[in-house]
Nucleic acid binder design. Structure first.
Length: 555
RNA sequence: GCGCCUGUAGCUCAGUAGGAUAGAGCAAUUGCCUUCUAAGCAAUGGGCCAGGGGUUCGAAUCCCUUCAGGCGCACCA
C-alpha cells in the first residue's frame, strides 16, 4: 500500500521504476517504515539524494491518505525517507484484527491457482530418517502457507514401489525369514536392507505362512515378500508422518504409472517429438537438447526401465493433470537430477519455470558433542520416529523450520533435550498458553470484551504500540514468506512476537490486581489490554498452524 | 577434474528484492515468584560477517578468485 504511494510520488518526478524498496528500520528514531528510493534515484536523476527526498516528501504529503496514516514524514541521513505511523491508524488496524480476523489475515497471492507440492516420497524400503523429517516439515508448512495465501494446493507422496529397491527389500525379508527357521539357504543380499524392521516383517510373514515358503525359489514367492514388505513399510511411514502431523491428499504409485500405460504413453509422446533414440541396445532420452549435460537412458539394454523413465512420465502427467505450478522437495543429494527432469517436461512442451525444486540439505546428528555415525547398511540410524520419541514432534518440527532449507542442519540431540525447558518452540507456545490463562482468569471474574465501544487508545505504552506494529506487520511477513516459499520466516516472526509479549506481561498487568477496587477506568484499560492479548493469540495461533505446531491451551 | 549448497558471537542459526550503529536463542555471570503460569523477566559481556580483489553514494548480501566443509557427477534409486 505504502509502496504504491511512493511509486506514485516517484512517477510525479517523471521517472519510472519497477518497485520501491520499503523497509522496517531497525533502530528507534528512524520511523516505522522507511524507503531509500531517493538514494537509488540520485544516479538516474543526477541530483542530490536529499533534494529528491524533499521533492518526494512534498508529493507524498499532498495526498489525503498519507495524512490519515502518518504522523509525519521526515528525511534523515543521506536521504532516507522515514514514515511515522499515526497511533490512530494503529488502533484502527488492531480493531480490524480483533473484529474481523479473516479479513485481516487474508492474503491473496494465489487466486486459486493450482499448485502441487510433492514431498517426502521416501522409498518404502526403510523407516523415515531425519532428512525426510526435514522435508516433511518444510513440505507441510509450505502447503499450509500456500493454501492460506489463496492457492489450491495438493500434497502428494510419490511411491517408488516398482523396481529394484522394493524387490531388494523383499529379498532381504526373504533372507530374514530363512534365518528365523535357522536356514541359511538364502543369505542376505550383498547390498540388502538390515535393521530390525526387516526381521519384524519376516516374523509377520512367518506367522501367516509358517515355514511353508522355505523351500521355494525367491521368484516364486517374490510377490508375497516384496509386496507385503513394502506395503507394511508404507504403512509405518504413513503412521510416522501422521504422528508428525503430516498428511497427504494423494499417494501416487509408480507401479500404477507402468500398469496404466502412462509411462509407455509418455515415451511415445517424446518419441514422436524426436527426443528418443536407440543406441547400444538401450533407449535414450535426448536430454542434451534441453540443457542437460548428457543424454539419459530410459530403457536399459536388458529391457528394464530406469527410474528416470517413470519419473519423466510422472512429471509430465503432473502438468497434464492441470497444475499451474509443481513444487518438488528433494534431498540435496538429488540435485544433479534437476536438469534431466526439467529437460523432460520441456520436451513435452511445458515451460520448466513451472517446476520448482526445493532442496533440503542433509541433517547430521550430534550426541554428547560427537557426530552420530549413521550407517544404513548396518541398520544403525536414528529415525524420525526415534527423534520424535526423544524430543517430541513439536520441537522437531519447529527446529526443522528454524533453518533455511539450503543450509546443512546439525541437530544436537543433547541440546534439544537439555534445552527442552528453554526451547524456542516452548517460548512461543508458552506465550499462547499464558494468554489463554489470562482469559480463564478474566472469565472467572466476569470481565467481558465483547462490547463494541472499547477504547483502544488506552494502549499508549511504548511496549503496546510496538506490539501493535508487530501484529499489523504479520500479513506482510506472511505474504513474503509465501512468495519466497520460505516458511521459516514465520518461525522467526513468532519468536520475535513472543519476545515482545513476555516482557510486556512481566512489566504490566493485563487484569487489575485481585482485591483492588475496580473502577470504570481500570476496567476499560483491562478490556483494551485483553483485546491486545487476544490479537496476539490470534496471530500466534495462525502462525503455528502454518508451521504445523500445536498451540496448547495450557502448559 | 566438473557442478550444486554452505562458511556470520564459544555453540546452533536469522539477516526481509544492496541500505542507516550486525541480530536471536543456547552457554556464562548477577538479580526477580504471598499479585494474571518463573517453560518467564531484567542486567552484563561477547563479532577483521572464512581470506583477497572488484562493482557503487553504500556490500554479510551482487561479480571474480582462493581456502574450508557437505553433496552430486551410472544402462542405481
Amino acid at each position: 500500500m505504502i509502496e504504491k504511494f511512493i511509486l506514485d510520488a516517484v512517477e510525479s518526478l517523471g521517472v519510472k521504476v519497477d518497485y520501491a524498496e520499503v523497509e522496517i528500520p531497525k533502530r528507534a528514531g528512524q520511523g516505522d517504515i522507511s524507503t531509500p528510493v531517493a538514494m537509488s534515484l540520485s544516479g538516474k536523476l543526477k541530483t542530490q539524494p536529499r533534494k529528491i527526498a524533499e521533492a518526494l516528501t512534498l508529493a507524498l504529503n499532498s495526498r489525503p491518505e498519507i495524512k490519515t496514516m502518518f504522523e509525519k514524514i521526515e528525511i534523515l541521513g543521506p536521504g532516507f525517507i522515514n514514515f511515522h505511523l499515526k497511533s490512530s491508524f494503529l488502533y484502527e488496524r488492531l480493531n480490524m484484527l480483533y473484529n474481523n480476523r479473516e479479513e485481516f489475515l487474508r492474503v491473496e497471492l494465489g487466486f486459486g491457482k493450482k499448485v502441487q507440492v510433492e514431498f517426502v516420497s521416501a522409498n518404502p524400503t526403510g523407516p523415515l530418517h531425519l532428512g525426510h523429517g526435514r522435508g516433511a516439515a518444510l513440505g507441510a508448512a509450505l502447503a499450509n502457507l500456500l493454501t492460506a495465501a489463496g492457492y489450491a494446493v495438493e500434497k502428494e507422496f510419490y511411491i517408488n514401489d516398482a523396481g529394484r529397491q522394493v524387490s531388494l527389500l523383499g529379498k532381504s525379508v526373504f533372507s530374514a525369514y530363512h534365518l528365523l527357521f535357522n536356514s541359511e539357504k538364502y543369505p542376505m543380499p550383498e547390498d540388502g536392507y538390515r535393521g530390525d524392521y526387516v526381521e519384524v516383517i519376516a516374523k509377520d510373514i512367518a506367522e501367516t505362512y509358517g515355514d511353508s515358503l522355505l523351500n521355494r525359489d525367491f521368484s516364486e514367492v517374490s510377490t508375497i515378500f516384496t509386496d507385503y514388505s513394502y506395503k507394511k513399510m508404507l504403512k509405518w511411514i504413513e503412521d510416522d508422518l501422521s504422528a508428525f502431523s503430516v498428511t497427504f491428499d494423494r499417494w501416487q504409485s509408480e507401479r500404477e504409472l507402468f500398469d496404466s500405460g502412462t509411462v509407455r504413453g509418455s515415451i511415445d509422446l517424446l518419441r514422436q517429438q524426436g527426443y528418443i533414440y536407440d543406441e547400444d541396445g538401450a533407449v535414450w532420452f535426448r536430454a542434451t537438447a534441453f540443457g542437460d549435460e548428457k543424454d539419459r537412458v530410459i530403457i536399459k539394454s536388458d529391457g528394464s526401465y530406469t527410474y528416470f523413465a517413470s519419473d519423466i512420465s510422472y512429471h509430465i502427467r503432473k502438468f497434464q493433470r492441470g497444475f499451474d505450478e509443481c513444487i518438488n522437495i528433494w534431498g540435496a543429494d538429488h540435485h544433479g537430477y534437476i536438469p534431466r527432469v526439467k529437460a523432460a517436461i520441456k520436451a513435452a512442451g511445458v515451460d520448466d519455470s513451472r517446476l520448482t525444486v526445493l532442496l533440503v540439505q542433509m541433517v547430521s546428528l550430534l550426541r554428547g558433542g560427537v557426530p552420530v555415525q549413521m550407517s544404513k547398511r548396518a541398520g544403525e540410524f536414528i529415525t524420525l520416529s526415534d527423534l520424535m520419541d526423544e524430543i517430541g514432534a513439536d520441537t522437531a518440527r519447529f527446529i526443522f523450520l528454524t533453518r533455511r532449507p539450503d543450509s546443512q542442519l546439525e541437530f544436537d540431540l543433547d541440546a534439544a533435550k537439555a534445552q527442552s525447558a528453554e526451547n524456542p518452540v516452548f517460548y512461543v507456545q508458552y506465550a499462547y498458553a499464558r494468554i489463554n490463562s489470562i482469559f480463564n482468569k478474566a472469565n472467572e471474574r466476569g470481565i467481558q470484551t465483547k462490547s463494541m465501544d472499547i477504547n483502544l487508545s488506552l494502549l499508549d505504552k511504548p511496549e503496546e504500540l510496538q506490539i501493535i506494529k508487530k501484529l499489523i506487520l504479520y500479513p506482510l511477513i506472511f505474504e513474503n514468506a509465501a512468495r519466497a516459499r520460505e516458511p521459516h520466516r514465520i518461525t522467526f516472526y513468532l519468536q520475535e512476537l513472543s519476545g515482545m509479549f513476555h516482557p510486556y506481561y512481566n512489566k504490566y498487568r493485563i487484569l487489575s490486581v485481585e482485591g483492588t477496587e475496580e473502577t470504570t477506568e481500570t476496567l476499560m484499560l483491562t478490556q483494551a489490554r485483553l483485546i491486545l492479548c487476544e490479537s496476539i493469540k490470534t496471530i500466534i495461533e495462525a502462525g503455528l498452524k502454518i508451521l504445523g505446531v500445536t498451540a496448547p491451551e495450557r502448559m
